[in-house]
Nucleic acid binder design. Structure first.
Length: 281
DNA sequence: GTTCTAGAAC
DNA sequence: GTTCTAGAAC
């Protein structure tokens, strides 16, 4: 039970009704905890008036084991990448921090992550590379510009050099990877990203990760929902903007198909088992 | 983006 | 009965 005092108002106790008021069914222990946390957060947010306290990724307790192996696998290459780290110019990072808006919503999480030195693999005056917080393969990085650009839709011809630089940095990051010769990598953007702030995915094609859990994850990297960096650059050069085809969001619902042998696989667990035949550990 | 879970699929 | 997914909530 919560005991707190804000703005002169004392809240001694929060009581959660263990029954759902609509269905009258008994709530699970987890659901009771979730409602307790929600009420507590609402009180804290209301009285402390601190919108930055609750950002993406901190909402619910998470299993510690998830992604651990991938993180360890990436670390060795990250150290190598860091050795080539340039000293950042005085502009860029601070400017990005100042111009960013609303860090509170989960979709703004990348703005926070890119500032976190623990996640940074490389940075220069234009871009930063971080490990994806929930890697969908053995190696999965994100290249982000310091400049605030919300998404592909906001890219224009004047961003051409920046986007080319992002691709160069992506290629260099792959070269630093100890498995660069044995694994294939792709570099590209999600056509309709969930997270704000334009980010280039650099991902190995093993898709061997406990964080890859559903059809949306799979299809976002193995269908045309994943837009190759080179294609994006070409679009910017020829049209001055990036064209996302109508119906692209429907690609996420396509049946599961192996990206290596094109075999249809019925379920995610079966797909993950199938991938072991292409990428033995 | 993730977590959680009802209910569909098996 | 168990496994798996889709969709709501965050």
């Amino acid at each position: 039970m919560l005991k707190c005092q804000y703005a002169g108002l004392s809240v001694r106790r929060i009581v959660i009704n263990p029954f759902d008021c609509h269905t009258n069914r008994q709530l699970s222990w987890v659901e009771v905890q979730r409602r307790l946390l929600k009420t507590k957060n609402a009180l804290v947010t209301k009285f402390k008036e601190d919108p930055a306290r609750d950002h993406g990724g901190t909402k619910r307790p998470r299993e510690l084991s998830s992604g651990d192996r991938e993180s360890r696998t990436q670390d060795s290459s990250l150290k190598a990448a860091k050795q080539s780290e340039k000293v950042p110019a005085s502009i860029g990072q601070e400017e990005a921090t100042k111009s960013s808006e609303s860090f509170g919503h989960w979709s703004q999480g990348l703005k926070t992550s890119m500032q976190d030195p623990k996640l940074q693999v490389y940075k220069d005056d234009k871009v930063v590379v971080i490990k994806d917080k929930y890697p969908k393969a053995r190696y999965h990085w994100l290249v982000l510009p310091w400049q605030t650009i919300s998404s592909l839709k906001a890219l224009r011809e004047e961003h051409c050099d920046l986007v080319k630089h992002m691709q160069q940095v992506a290629e260099r990051t792959v070269q630093q990877c100890p498995d660069a010769n044995s694994l294939r990598f792709r570099t590209g953007y999600h056509a309709i990203p969930s997270m704000s702030h334009v980010h280039l995915h650099v991902i190995s094609q093993d898709f061997d990760s406990p964080c890859l859990k559903n059809k949306k994850h799979w299809n976002s990297f193995t269908t045309d929902y994943f837009m190759e960096s080179q294609d994006v650059i070409q679009m910017l050069e020829t049209n001055g903007r990036v064209n996302v085809k109508e119906g692209t969001s429907e690609l996420l619902k396509l049946p599961l198909r192996c990206h290596m042998c094109r075999k249809d696989i019925p379920t995610i667990p079966a797909l993950k088992e199938h991938l072991k035949s292409h990428f033995p550990s």
